[in-house]
Amino acid sequence: MTGIIIQQIFNALTIGAIYAMIALGYTMVYGVLRLINFVHGDLFMLGAYVALAGFVLLAPGGGLVWALAAALIAIAVFMVVGGVGVAIERTAYKPLRNSNRLAPMLSSLGLSLALQTAVQITMGPQPIAFQSLFPAIPLDFLGARITTVQIGIVVAALLLMVGLKLFIARSRLGVVVRAVSENRRTAQLLGVDVDKAISTIFFIGPGLGALGGVLFASYYGVMMPTMGIIIGLKAFTAAILGGIGSITGAVVGGFLLAFFEVFGTAMLPILTNGWLGTEYRDIFAFLMLILVLLFRPAGLFGEQTSEESMVMKRDF
């Protein structure tokens, strides 16, 4: 029994790490622009495809060369998808910065559709097998079986998240980003380069999401053009759960959502004596979300103090 529990905890941690990495992108963009960036899920997908292209180009052998190539590819993925993120912001969101809040959201929906279809047309709609970044060695641990890939994913995700937290808290650029997300107009009046802050966000957010895509593909061994839709939606839910705009919230929300899902799959049939099966997992997860929001309308780590600072007065 303990074996099962430990196994389930590790299952949830792995899924949660991936959700959290993508949720970070949503939450950062939201913090600055108050925008649900629907294209984020597709940038996550793009990350996996760029990594695949990298592996095909470099065709690394084994051992140290391979590790070096993997590191190079990770950096390349971050740069390429980060660049795409900045380009998207410049063309599709910047002209809409002063219009109603629905407009950029729908522009992102349109781009999301276009990006998915573009990848589908160039790479084909088939799922493509993806070789893992880490060698998968199963480890037996107190009756549970955990692979090194799972451990690698959790560690890599945590490292990246800590790095991001430090960057925002310590670096000069981080200060600029924080100022802009606190209050864009005031920051602008004080001479903060708002465009620079927004570009930074749109570089780091998609970059992290793309690395999430690479981790995802190496864990599941498969990637496809539509893989960003559902994962993106889940990560967005996680960001909301944690309190959108909050980096800690996104991470906690990601892990929490994963735990809800694993719990829903594992325990629902047992607790309800088979009356509610695993097919009710998503309903369970959404009900938990609604429950959390009933008591904390701004999510777990969102600013609760003033309802007004949460969103601009007039949404659209």
Binding site: I4, Q7, Q8, N11, A12, T14, I15, Y220, V222, M227, I229, I230, E261, V262, T265, A266, P269, G277, T278, E279, R281, D282
Partner: peptide, 20 residues
């Protein structure tokens, strides 16, 4: 046991652990 998953699911680890 008879279980259902979502057509969009990619992660079955939780279910597989229960099946074990």
């Amino acid at each position: 046991s008879s279980s259902a998953v979502n057509p969009t699911d990619v992660d079955f680890t939780a279910l597989i652990t229960q099946l074990k």
